[in-house]
Design a protein around this nucleic acid. Structure first.
Length: 361
RNA sequence: ACGCCAGUAGCUCAAUUGGCAGAGCGGCCGUCUCCAAAGCGGCAGGUUGGGGGUUCGAUUCCUCCCUGGCGUGCCA
């Protein structure tokens, strides 16, 4: 890992990764591995904001996600998969960054507000909850990345991180506030004003029916409508055959509706044979093909994507030490970059009094 | 800091003066459907927040603790 531009992204360990993660971000990450030095963070501390009482679950999720990454095809010899809580420079940067953000600015973050509402937290959330939004700025900026691939819901966090980067560069590195984002480093800034990168599908629907309002729900573990990367072929078949589809279509010969139909959304998202999809959609509208045939095809399509993932997973499941080994190697690599960022940040802030030795083992 | 109210299935809530812990929703299975949905039928799910006590018997009464809500103080 040398002079290539860096990518930073990651996940909070709340469960196993599913197809929504795949099209939302994982595909991008795999594609970026060659051209970028990639750092994939498993945000275990973030998980404690709402599940501080479930440490065993969080630990298991960390290992599950690391295994998912490796099975999905992230190459540990090329990219760093690391555990957030073992990179102390992130915490140190969090403290400094917290001084650059008004509290109101943090609480105005729409992602934060949505989470408070969705989880029905009222005003009863830990102090660590808003603090974590600041921490996420440090998660990112510690790696001075060029690119941050994320799901759409994370954009407000990224915008805040970009604000922190601009403010830091202006305040401590003498960057002129009128500087264009892409020129911040050239103008002497420590932190590049990175670009977000969204997946080709921003919001994949789940396998289930719509909410009472009629809107299809996004795929998520908690809604029990997800197909996981670790699902075996039989499970995928069962889930696909059980998928919600056009409820007005009682017989296979009735004309069907393609629009807003999860079955077709999945084909359009995952089936590489676009001509087949277009042709069959026409037949479906005309009542010339049954849902079962379309579902069987989808099972085939999904299993084709998931099979190589299963093969790699099988290897790692036989050698769990390899997963921990990859995490350890990734964490060492992450610390090298994050420590360097921290030292540079301290220099910029004139708080570099003497070299220190943490005697990290 | 003190006072009051609350905590029961995944969720919302019942349970007579202390007497076998229930319903709705959700979940799973079946039926019906090309499959799914809808409908119908069934099943599972509990340390009644935790510890201690009284009692033949405690969700219920006593006590301590935890969590949350409301109120009144204190810092001032």
């Amino acid at each position: 890992m040398s002079s290539k531009p860096r990518v930073l992204t990651g996940d909070t360990p709340t469960g196993k990764l599913h197809l929504g993660h795949w099209v939302g971000s994982l595909e991008n990450r795999l594609a970026l591995q060659d051209q970028y030095d990639c750092y994939f963070l498993i945000a275990n501390k973030h998980a404690f904001t709402t599940r501080a009482d479930q440490p065993a679950d969080i630990r298991q999720s960390v290992l599950d996600i690391a295994t998912d990454y490796l099975a999905a095809g992230i190459d540990p010899n090329q990219s760093a998969i690391f555990v957030q809580s073992e990179v102390p420079a992130i915490d140190e940067l969090t403290f400094f960054f917290a001084m650059l953000l008004p509290f109101n600015r943090v609480m105005r973050n729409p992602t934060l507000k949505d989470e408070i509402r969705d989880k029905d937290l009222g005003d009863n959330y830990p102090f660590g909850f808003p603090l974590y939004a600041v921490g996420q700025c440090a998660d990112i900026l510690a790696f001075r990345p060029a690119l941050v691939p994320v799901g759409e819901d994370q954009l407000p966090h990224l915008e805040m991180s970009r604000e922190v980067a601009r403010r830091f560069d202006q305040m401590y590195c003498g960057v002129d506030p009128h500087t264009q984002d892409e020129n911040y480093v050239a103008a002497g800034g420590l932190f590049p004003i990175f670009q977000p990168l969204l997946g080709r599908v921003r919001r994949l629907v789940g396998t289930g029916g719509p909410a009472p309002g009629g809107e299809l729900l996004k795929m998520s573990k908690s809604l029990n409508n997800a197909i996981f990367l670790c699902d075996d072929a039989d499970t995928v078949q069962k889930k696909v055959m059980g998928m919600y589809t056009d409820p007005k279509r009682v017989r296979a010969t009735d004309p069907g509706t393609v629009q807003n139909n999860p079955l077709w959304i999945f084909h359009e998202t995952f089936n590489p044979d676009k001509a087949w999809v277009a042709q069959q959609e026409e037949a479906y509208r005309a009542g010339k093909v049954g849902d079962v045939a379309i579902k069987r095809k989808l099972v085939e399509v999904l299993n084709t994507i998931l099979e190589p993932i299963r093969q790699r997973r099988k290897n790692y499941e036989q050698r769990p030490d390899d997963v921990l080994g990859a995490l350890r190697a990734g964490t060492i690599a992450a610390n090298a970059v994050a420590e360097e960022t921290l030292q540079l940040a301290k220099q910029a802030m004139k708080q570099d009094y003497f070299p220190r030795s943490l005697a990290l083992r």
